[in-house]
Each structure stands twice: as structure tokens, then as C-alpha cells.
Design a protein around this nucleic acid. Sequence first.
DNA 1: GATGAATGAGCCTTCATTCAT
DNA 2: TATGAATGAAGGCTCATTCAT
Lengths: 205, 205, 205, 205
Amino acid sequence: MPRVNAEHKEERRAQIIAAARTCFARAGFHRTTLQDVFAEANLSAGCVYSYFKSKEELVFAIAEQRHQDERAAIVEGSSAQDPIEGLRSIAQRFAHDYLGEDGLERRLIAIQTWSESVLNPALLASVLEGVEAPMRQIAQLIRRGQAFGKLSTKIDPEATARTMIAMLHGFILQKLWEPNLDPAAGLAIFERFLDSLSVPSDSRR
Amino acid sequence: MPRVNAEHKEERRAQIIAAARTCFARAGFHRTTLQDVFAEANLSAGCVYSYFKSKEELVFAIAEQRHQDERAAIVEGSSAQDPIEGLRSIAQRFAHDYLGEDGLERRLIAIQTWSESVLNPALLASVLEGVEAPMRQIAQLIRRGQAFGKLSTKIDPEATARTMIAMLHGFILQKLWEPNLDPAAGLAIFERFLDSLSVPSDSRR
Amino acid sequence: MPRVNAEHKEERRAQIIAAARTCFARAGFHRTTLQDVFAEANLSAGCVYSYFKSKEELVFAIAEQRHQDERAAIVEGSSAQDPIEGLRSIAQRFAHDYLGEDGLERRLIAIQTWSESVLNPALLASVLEGVEAPMRQIAQLIRRGQAFGKLSTKIDPEATARTMIAMLHGFILQKLWEPNLDPAAGLAIFERFLDSLSVPSDSRR
Amino acid sequence: MPRVNAEHKEERRAQIIAAARTCFARAGFHRTTLQDVFAEANLSAGCVYSYFKSKEELVFAIAEQRHQDERAAIVEGSSAQDPIEGLRSIAQRFAHDYLGEDGLERRLIAIQTWSESVLNPALLASVLEGVEAPMRQIAQLIRRGQAFGKLSTKIDPEATARTMIAMLHGFILQKLWEPNLDPAAGLAIFERFLDSLSVPSDSRR
DNA sequence: GATGAATGAGCCTTCATTCAT
DNA sequence: TATGAATGAAGGCTCATTCAT
């Protein structure tokens, strides 16, 4: 029995995924050949194929990984005591990860995934879950904010959450198109948006 | 006679672009083969090639057409007397075109174009112009609204315009992922957002 | 409209099939690469693929062609007045085509087809029809021979036909294994076999 | 201890050959991958490779095994006192092994081997020996039958033996194509054929 | 001896593009 | 101008074989 265990396999998987992310971010899913990935990962075709049985599966694995990361980000925010702080925390976390200077690869993978998802049901399911999980958490935080009297009860938690997500996604696109865009301006708007949802008496910051 | 030729050429171009849009919406840029387009357009390979000298050029032409349509939409909105009404009009026009039930093809083409643009400088230039032209118009309307005392002078016209666009794009993505999504809820939020930008005394509608 | 008509297409098809037969006879279905066929046919990959949409289809087309040829051979024999002469004629025709010195390619294709047919239902159907059509014709001739009092009524026409086919196939195998084998000896045996089926009074030759 | 090792090695070899036969019968030589064989044998790649140094060698070993079995069958028949009984015994033994309901795997291996042998000199040598050894034995029996006055001296012992083998092989093919075929009818014909070779006075059974 | 992860040459197939008619 | 048969480079994927453990 060779000295290869589950841990080694997990490392290889990660190595392949990392290489694929690099390639996909550089050239997109379709323009990236698997040869590119093999070269980037320093692995042979056969080896990569023993971990992912098609290019599609590799694409899917990368989408899944993205959503796992996002879920982790949300859990953090949801644990905040103050729901407003929770919202702010989630927004900042996402803004940092996706709009920050280090987020380029993430952004590039994101848009590829979005674009691919509309033509690939399996990917769509993954993207949907990745979008809806945060949406539910945000709506939940809003509801808690309303219960605590900190957010206006006139707003619809679901629609508001949806809008927040829309703004984030829209900013991701803009940051891709204009790499020098300062995400701070966007965040400021977001704060103002949050404020607009707050109960009048509570105008702050 | 040259007029007839020019007209005929323009018709053929339109016919090819329409066929390509249909194909691209159905299967994406990369999964669509030019033979698919030839079949959809009922034209031969050679004929299509005499109008577009590569697949890339066809993709580019479609992106351009998209932005021409959008520019037309904006001009309408900018001509409104009341800047707030102008903003609302632009928002509704975009919402109708991109979020309505008939907008599916447009949405599919849009996301393909966005995704492609980050890897294709020529396309990026086209997309950028298509995004920034509306943004400038909206910022201009906001500035006029501020000048008329209808919008708070505390807001940054550019950042706000950027946010409006971001929300629209984000909703386009969501409508692609959840085709049954009712954009009305999102629009309501948008209205509330607009309201939040208005001067306090002026709470309306 | 280019100067290409149905006739031209039929010629190309034949050209490809001929090249494929040559390759398959030389190296077998599995060891033959399509590149080999392209080279032998002096055609590009794309061109061949516009006539046969997979390697399997090419294999199938060759099996079909074989059976069409055989059917033609049978029709000849069936038209003979004397049923015994008809049987002899069919046997000689098959012996000439499959056991003669020019029949090497045919034999090689035959055994490849047989071997492949047991693992490929579509091919099996083709082979079965190719075997059973002659079998039916032979049985029919035997029955006519019995009716004319020239063949013993004790023999089962179907089983006898089956046995004649079995002998032919078996000789094809032997001729493949021993290329110098003289098929005349086999034919002589066949004659003796025919005699053994004849009514006693009629011992001849 | 060396005895144990040799025994163990022989067992492993047999285990591998059995697994390979199963796979080859299921999918043919070419469609069977060695990984299929590893799985069927429950052995690792390295282990199998220490017994057979290539796929081709495995194929060859299987062909050899087949002929060893056949030789055993013949020895039995040759030991009969009565040459006619000896012929009948050999025929029945082969018919049972290759045409019986349990003979499917054997038939499938046989046709694969035949087909492969025409393209593989080493295999051809093995097949030839496998075919000619029985043929010689049968011819010998016929000659004994003639010497004993039980078979017509007009027949050519070699050609007749060859014909008997041809019939058997032909029936094997037919049984592969029509699995429900009852070989009894064929055997009856064979008996009649044998009878036809007998001296007239001796019409029996 | 046994393991099985890894290798990489090479196969089948696709499709953007060309050009003789 | 229009046709569509033909091209051929290149991509996804397989699988016989090796070798460090």
C-alpha cells in the first residue's frame, strides 16, 4: 500500500482546483484547455482525470468551492449580536473578498460561473444555492433588526436582501470592467442604503 | 442602385445578427458553432463570412447592437422635464427591457457579453461605453435634481448612478437564475431607494 | 451552387469505404486509426466526418456493403432453372469471392465484422440478415430440389442450408489461417456433400 | 518453499486468466481495458504485470489455454477402439463444449481469438496449431476407418477432416449470432455427413 | 511480492475558416 | 454575391504501462 492516504488525495484535489482557477481566471472556462490546467498543476492528464472525470466536473467543483467559501463568510456575520452590525459585517466581508484588490481571481471566476450557470442546470443549482443561502441569512438579520426596532417594519426583508445581493453582484461586474474602481464609494452607498432602512429616530453614523 | 445594395446588405447583416442572437441565447457564445448560425440564418458559410470576417466579429457586433439600443433608451429618459421622473422613466425602461418576460434573450446575451468582455479588450471597450453612457446620463439627472432642490445634495451623483446600474445588473442576474422572479418587488425597493435620496420635505408617491 | 451532386457524394462515400476497407483489412477495426483512413482516402478528417459521423458508422457501412454484395450473389443463383445447379452456382460464387486468391480483403473484413458483431447489436442485426438471407434462399432451392425429386426428402432444408453456410464460413477461417490452402479440395467436399443429399438413383458427377 | 511459491504463482496466473476471459468475453479484447481486468481479478496493476508483461501476452496466454483444452478433448476421442465412434466422440465433445449452453464464454473467446490471429503472427501460430492438431487426429481416425473398411476409400482423409472442422467453426459462429439456435439439427446433419462417408453396405444408426 | 498513483502518447472528434464553382 | 464541400489544427479524453513505496 503506497504512502497515499485520503489527505494526500485532498491535497491533490486542491492543487488541481487551484491550477484550474488560475487558468480559468486567466482565459475563461472555454478558452482554457485542459492541457493548460495540466501544465499549471504540473500534473499529467491521466492524473487530473483520476480526480475529475471531465472538464465540466472541474468547472462544477470550482463553483461549489466558491459557495462553500461564501457560506463560511455568512456564518460569521450571522453570529453578530446587533443585526445591523451583522449586515454591515457581511457586506464588508463580501466587499473585501469580491471587491478588494486581491479579489480579482474570485471576481473572474464568479462571472464565468454566472455566465455558465444559465446554460448548465447542475451549475445553476449550485449558483442558486450559493445566492439564496446568503439571501436567507440577510433576510433573517433584517427581520431580527425589525424585531429589535432598529429597522423600519415597512420594508420587505426578502426583497431588501435580494436588493443588497443585487448591488453586490452589480459592483462585482463594475469592478471587473473598471479595475481601478474604488469599492469604498459603493460601500458608502450601501451604508446610506442601510440607513434608509433604519427607523427615523435612529439616524446615525 | 447602390442604395438598393446598401439596403440589402444592411438587411442581410440584421438577418445574421438576429440568427446569431438566437443561437447565442440558446447555447452561449462558445457552445454555438458558426454552422448553427448558418443554419439558423438559412445562409451559407461563405455568405455569412462576407459580412463578418470571424466569429469574434459577430460577437462584437451583437454587443455593439445592444449598446445602441440602450443609448436610445436613455435619450428618452433624459428628455423628461422632471429629473426624478426622468430617473424613474429610465429605470422603468431598463426594467421592462431586461427584467420583463420578453427580455430573456436580452438577458442571456447580456450575461454572455459581460462574461466575455473581461477576456476580450475590444468587447470590454464596448461594454464599458454601454455602461458608462447611461451612468453619465443618470448622474446628470441627479445633478439636475439636486439643482432643482428635489434631491439631497449630500449624495454623490456618480456613486448613486453607479449603484442604480449595479442594482439593475444584479437583478438581471437574479432573473436569469430564477426565471419566475417578479421584478416588481425589486423595483419597489428601487423606488424606496430613490425616495431615500430625495430631500426630506419632499416625501411622495 | 457548386458542381456537387448526389453522384459526387456517392463517389466520395465509395472512396472512403474503399479506403477504410483497405485499412481495416490491413490492421483490423481497432488498430486502424481514423487518421489512417484519412491518409488512405486522401481526404481530411472533416470531410470523412461529413459522410460518416463516427468510426462505428463507418464499420457499420462496410458490413452493410458486404451483405448487399452477397445478396446480389444469391439472386444470381436463385434464378437457375435446375435447383441443384442453383446450389452449385451459389456455392461456386461464394467460394470464388471468399476463398479465391482475390478474396483476401473480403475475408479479412468478414472475420473482423463477425468478431465485432457479437459485441455490437447494430452490427449483429446486419450480420444476421446477411447470413439468413442466403440461408433462406438455399433452403428454398433445396425445397425445390426435393419437389423435383432431385434431393432426398429425408433432409431438413433449413438445417442443410445452415450446414452449407457453416462449411463456407469455416473454410473462410481456414483460408485466413492458411493462405495457401486450395479451396478446390473444399469445393470437392461440398460436391460430395451435395451428392450425399441427392436421391440414390441420381448418383452422378 | 519453492514448491509453495510455484504453486502460488500458478494460482495467481489462473486467477488472472480467468478474470481476463470474463472481461474479454464481455467486451472483446480491444474494448477491455487492463483496468477492467485488474478489477475483475481483484489485483493491482503491478501484480498483474508481474505475471504478464503486456496486454498482448495475456491475450496470447488465453489463446494457448484454449488449445490445451482442445488437445485434451482430442486425446480422448483418439483412444476409442472404433474409429467411427472416435469421430463421433470428438464431434460430440466439441459440440458440447462449443455449442452447448455453457459454451458462450468459450465461443466469445474463440471468435475474438480468430479475429485477432489474422493480424498477430504469434497468435496465428497458436491458432494454427490449435486447429491442425485436431485436424490431424481426425484425418488419422478416418484413415483407420478406411483401413478397417468402415469408411469409403474414395474420400480424402485430410479434406474430410478439414470439412468437419469447418462445419464446427461455422456452427460456432451461428450459435453466437443466434444464441437460441439448437445445435442438434446441425449435429444431425453432421451425422448424415459421416454416414455419407461410410461404405454403402454399412448404412447404420 | 504487491500496490495503485501517476504518466503521456495518441485517439476520436469538432469546428472556424477557405475557396473553387 | 452566394454556395457548401473541404480543410486541418487542436481539444477532450483514454488506457497500457511504470515505479516509488
